[in-house]
Nucleic acid binder design. Structure first.
Length: 577
RNA sequence: CGGGAUGUGGCGCAGCUUGGUAGCGCACCUCGCUUGGGACGAGGGGGUCGCACGUUCAAAUCGUGUCAUCCCGACCA
């Protein structure tokens, strides 16, 4: 490709509305243009990158035994009603009507469709196991799209679905996909961690996410990990706690109610009583699926909302507003303000206590009376009904690994892929069954496996850039090399550049010849910004028979003969896989 | 959904307070000159100032409404 014909326009400055590195870089270097919020045009350079990632995914999925197909982007409401997700999915599901007023939606994921395909054509145990996948645009009407390609509304995803007759079969395929994912991200030049995670609204029991670990602020997830190999998303991580004072016997000799004026926060209360916060039982009111739930936890710790939501068996959670708390107090005949709330007397409302609460003795707790707390208390003193214990605690750095006991570390991660065990979550309600050896019907045991293609591209930029621009891993770079004749009016320079260009093209190297009548500085800036992995500069030294060969990643520069540079590049490209 | 901000050529911005013929830099086109890290000179094309209504002799500028976009939070296979 000749640069003079390449459809790309680089910008002198970063667009004002771009926040994270990948968005800034991709927009400035002419890879993407925003069409509307969370929706982007993929310009020719971007599309080349995306196709390369797709091809790596495709090769590895095929090698792992999966089969590619393509499902429709527009889907009928009826199937979503069968699975029960028409109501459960919420506003993220983009709904629309056709001219006959038939209600449709844009596919945010394809469990319903694939399950319908399977029940139509997958009738015998003899046909399984089978794994079907597609690479396609998805649409999710995010409340707040952001971070460019990292959290768009329309994005490209590879989604695969497996069908088995047994849990063992599913387990095998799950491991198979985990290995394929590792190879895919390795080939894309991405360092990923496979972490345990919550399985969320998709449902199912077990899930893992593949996270790109970056030092940029684009990582939306906290990942806790240990040198022993344990790694988990914060919404799922568990830990062992450091030792703490959990028995208040040295502070309180009897159980009594005392005045604690204006102690609205844990900090104020522990200061007022001159006790560690580990002796205070914190009570928080959440609204889970529109109903109140009280969470109890040792006060030095925070509640992990996803864990709490799962413990409460809900699909939706948020902290209660002060108005809702007031209402709840009134219903139970109290009038305490937040800061003095407690489980005492809260009948007919689920109370979920974190595991930390089990060990607490002679502690301090709110009793739903403003400016008062009860000290030297044990949970049994409070006569709590509907009590349930669960791990609802947010892990913190410094906690210990649940598996080996060493201190956990925390890092930010960008989720680029995930794998779920779905079980019969979709096959059962949709009555998608096969016949076994005895002619008896059973629902499929399913798994699903996603990779965000466009997000992977953005994550690669987050992981590979410098102040001058992008540094693509060669396997997913839009082109392998750019040849820059410094002065296109110089006959020898231009002839040499053209000759190398033709030779490289012939050898299958993806090469751009920067034949623009621009000054060298402009071409160098653009080359760095766009992120060609290699640059060959044909300048003055060509009179002595040499060109400059530069590696973008390392900045290393060599002076070599043109034919050496060509050979070198051909070798490098041969080795990409 | 709560909080904050912004909409002026493709991109980045000024002008608005105090209403009076829409401007700058980059990009784009032409010519000259230049050619190893975003040169220079001259000439040129492109914007009903997000939209609507209102106030006024006159609105980018003032008022009301509305839409869009971005940031923080909440939310999020």
């Amino acid at each position: 490709m000749r640069m003079s014909k390449l459809f790309v326009q680089t910008l002198r400055e970063f667009p004002a509305d771009a926040e994270v590195i990948s968005h800034k870089m991709l927009a400035r270097a002419g890879y993407i243009r925003k069409l509307t919020s969370g929706v982007y045009n993929y310009l020719p350079l971007m599309w080349r990158v995306l196709k390369k990632i797709e091809n790596i995914v495709r090769e590895e999925m095929d090698a792992a035994g999966a089969q590619e197909l393509l499902m429709p982007f527009v889907q009928p409401k009826e199937l979503w009603e069968e699975s029960g997700r028409w109501d459960a999915y919420g506003k993220e599901l983009m709904r629309l009507k056709d001219r006959h007023d038939r209600v449709m939606c844009l596919g945010p994921t394809h469990e319903e469709i694939i399950t319908a395909i399977a029940r139509d054509g997958l009738k015998s145990y003899k046909q399984m196991p089978v794994n079907l996948y597609q690479i396609q645009s998805k649409f999710r009407d995010e409340v707040r799209p952001r971070y460019g390609l990292l959290r768009g509304r329309e994005f490209i995803m590879k989604d695969a679905y497996s069908f088995d007759t047994s849990e063992e079969g599913l387990d095998k395929e799950y491991q198979n996909m985990a290995r394929a994912y590792k190879r895919i991200f390795d080939r894309c030049g991405l360092d990923t961690k496979m972490v345990q995670s919550d399985s969320g609204a998709i449902g199912g029991s077990v899930s893992h996410e593949f996270m790109v670990i970056t030092d940029t602020d684009a990582g939306e997830n906290d990942v806790f990990y240990c040198e022993c190999g344990y790694a988990a998303n914060s919404n799922h991580a568990v830990s062992k706690l450091p030792a703490a004072v959990v028995d208040g016997k040295d502070y309180f000799t009897e159980t009594k109610i005392i005045d604690t004026p204006n102690t609205h926060s844990i900090e104020e209360l522990s200061k007022f009583l001159n006790i560690p916060s580990t002796l205070i039982l914190k009570s928080l009111v959440y609204i889970v699926d529109k109903k109140p739930v009280i969470a109890l936890i040792r006060a030095d710790r925070a509640v992990e909302e996803t864990k709490l939501m799962n413990a409460a068996g809900g699909n939706d959670i948020r902290i209660a507003s002060s108005a809702e708390i007031a209402e709840l107090m009134t219903e139970h005949g109290f009038d305490a303000v937040p800061g003095f709330i407690g489980p005492k007397g809260m009948k007919n409302i689920p109370i979920i206590a974190d595991e930390t609460v089990r060990e607490m003795k002679n502690f301090v707790v709110g009793i739903n009376q403003t400016d008062k707390h009860q000290v030297g208390t044990n949970l049994s003193d409070l006569g709590v009904e509907n009590l349930q214990y669960a791990d609802i605690r947010l892990v913190e750095a410094g906690d210990f690994c649940p598996e080996c006991g060493k201190p956990l570390k925390v890092t930010k991660g960008i989720e680029v892929g995930n794998i779920f065990k779905l079980g019969t979550k979709y096959s059962k309600p949709m009555n998608a069954v096969y016949l076994d050896q005895n002619g008896k019907s059973h629902p499929y045991i399913m798994g699903c496996y996603g990779i965000g293609i466009s997000r992977t591209a953005a994550a690669a930029v987050e992981a590979h850039y410098d102040e001058h621009g992008i540094k693509w891993p060669i396997s997913i770079a839009p082109y392998h090399v750019v040849i820059v004749p410094v002065n296109i009016q110089d006959k020898l320079q231009m002839e040499t550049a053209e000759k190398m260009y033709e030779e490289l093209k012939k050898a299958g190297v993806e090469v751009v010849l920067d034949d623009r009548d621009e000054r060298a500085g402009v071409k160098f800036k653009d080359a760095d910004l766009i992120g060609f992995p290699y640059r060959v500069t044909v300048g003055k030294t060509i009179t002595e028979g040499f060109v400059e060969y530069k590696t973008r990643e390392t900045g290393e520069v060599e002076t070599v003969k043109p034919e050496v540079a060509v050979e070198h590049l051909i070798e490098i490209v041969k080795k990409i896989k």
